[in-house]
Simulated assay, not measured.
Amino acid sequence: MSQTKNPRRVEANEARVKLVSVRISPRKLNLVAQSIRGLKVQRALNELEFSHKRIAKDVRKALYSAISNAENNHNLDIDNLFVAQAYVGKGIVMKRFASRARGRSSRILKPFSEITIVVREFGAEAAKGAA
């Protein structure tokens, strides 16, 4: 007796990747997520390649992973993919203290965040596959 298979959390024409424990604040990561939201995947990869943000490199790796998941696991055509969703969530916050003048100290917050990227296939083939 084996466990029953869990239902898919995304539709038949979608693939998802989630990057957790990213060492950057959610506010900064959301700027990068906004820049790729709604774009075709090739355009989004180019946007991340030439972005000056430090975290764009990690987001680019996550997007590559989503594209690979779509191609290998879900048999989607990578030429017809676009970034349907890219959203950011809060993670843990490490609290540290720094020494200040006159024997005082101040708190330093080191936030973590997570990003979820959903790529979706569009076109006539996707409509037939979903039905």
Rank of each mutant, 00 (worst) to 15 (best):
S106A: 15
A124G: 00
N73Q: 12
F112A: 07
A62I: 11
R54Q: 13
D77G: 01
S25P: 12
I36G: 09
L19R: 01
L81M: 07
K53M: 08
K40V: 08
F97E: 14
H74P: 06
R120V: 00
Q3S: 13
S65F: 05
E121V: 03
R120D: 03
G123V: 02
A86Q: 01
N73L: 04
V22M: 11
S51P: 11
R54C: 01
Y64H: 13
S35I: 11
S65W: 00
G103R: 03
V59P: 01
N80Q: 12
L39H: 10
N73T: 03
G38Q: 11
P26W: 06
L109W: 01
K128P: 05
M1N: 12
M1W: 02
R100M: 11
I24T: 14
K53C: 06
A56M: 12
E47L: 11
L48Q: 07
R96D: 05
S68D: 13
I92D: 08
V10T: 15
R27I: 14
E11K: 11
R16A: 07
L81Q: 05
K18A: 14
A44T: 09
Q42P: 06
Y64M: 11
V88R: 01
S105N: 09
D79N: 13
A62E: 04
K90S: 07
H74V: 11
G89W: 04
R107G: 09
K90N: 10
S21I: 05
E121R: 00
V17G: 02
N30E: 15
T116I: 05
